[in-house]
Write a protein that binds this DNA or RNA. Structure first.
Lengths: 208, 208
DNA sequence: GTCTATAAGAGGATAGAC
DNA sequence: GTCTATCCTCTTATAGAC
């Protein structure tokens, strides 16, 4: 952020405050979504005044974009760890990041991305950090999909972009919310993962 | 509604107006979702005064519930047609209703159900027509799932409730919106249907 | 039942003192 | 940068005439 290697105490405090704000935003975005989340709730949660928050972020949309960027950065980090694991094939890596996304949603820490809000979409598109992280993550996933198609572990009859978006969609899959509680979280995640990659139907009797 | 077999002209007009209102609500709910839909938009679309709308429906939540009930009633009708077709097995029937749900979403006529809105959820739960239709449709789907499990066309290793909710989830799958335009709607629907029931991975090389 | 006009309140954003 | 107090717009819902 600056040329200084060691941040001042003041910088550290500001960073910590911004992190606290984004923690609250992330949680509220995950539980209520963008429209239902209010700035008043955010500041009440963090324990600061609303005007103070607006010194850090220009608008509610900027707030959401910053929180989403942080999640995407974490996802990129998870992806990098998976990529570094030589024991995993491309399909395993795809499953790994999908598993992480679902676990994060169940933990109440995955902001729900699919918003019909045009204002929010515009703000996200204009947010450099967000689009960069999204693009970088997509590139990694696309590379794995290509690899899995090449080694025959993904079906070549399906469009690769459909596979990419299907992985993203698991991050906000409502099925997880509906089924949580009826079976342990770990089993739930593995079941949805199984259904996503191997389907609901029996492979031997797959008809039409 | 009354003991009269032939509705009066006045009753016909009122019914027609309510249908026009629900048409607008349905479309707005599909494109913007509950929070972003405003009652002002609805009345502007129908061409009536806001106070007139509130003579028909007590609240915005009631409005949404009535629209959702209508969609569920249509779904039940579609399911009944599929059930009457003796040439179809239970898995084909499940696929049929899933296909209809996705086509309806692409047509901009599927209200997005997954709302974090607690007030809306309460209103839906209290709406007899809505819960009855939802329950009836679920029963039919569960019956098909049981049948498909019995004849071996659905995988017995997955929880039946997961299958039920997965079918419902396709009605509001964001993947359809992301991919629309990049390939014809008909192909898109078949691809997502294929991915849902047969998975992204190649059955022969299905690893972990 | 339909209209015009308005109440009532929530929520995003800012002014100005410190 | 942080606070308190306030502005202002949007939105749900209703009052009251016809």
């Amino acid at each position: 952020m600056t040329t200084r290697t060691k941040p001042t105490f003041r910088e550290t405090m500001l960073q910590a405050r911004e992190d606290a704000i984004l923690d609250a935003v992330n949680r509220l975005l995950a539980t209520k979504g963008f429209e239902l989340m209010t700035v008043d709730e955010v500041v009440a949660d963090v324990g600061i005044a609303k005007a103070s928050l607006y010194k850090h972020f220009d608008s509610k949309e900027e707030l959401a974009a910053a929180a989403m960027q942080r999640v995407l950065a974490t996802a990129q980090s998870v992806a990098a760890d998976l990529q570094a694991d030589a024991s995993l094939g491309p399909l395993d890596k795809l499953k790994g990041v999908t598993r992480w996304a679902m676990q994060t949603q169940l933990a109440g820490q995955m902001p729900s991305l699919p918003s019909h809000n045009q204002t929010l979409r515009a703000a996200l598109g204009a947010h450099k950090g967000y689009t960069d992280s999204l693009f970088g993550l997509s590139e990694q996933l696309e590379q794995w999909i290509e690899g899995a198609l090449a080694d025959g572990s993904l079906r070549s009859s399906l469009p690769p972009t459909l596979m990419l978006y299907t992985v993203f969609a698991r991050a906000c899959d409502p099925v997880l919310g509906f089924l949580r509680g009826s079976l342990p979280d770990a089993e739930l995640v593995e079941s949805v993962l199984d259904a996503t990659f191997h389907g609901l139907a029996h492979p031997l009797k797959a008809g039409s």
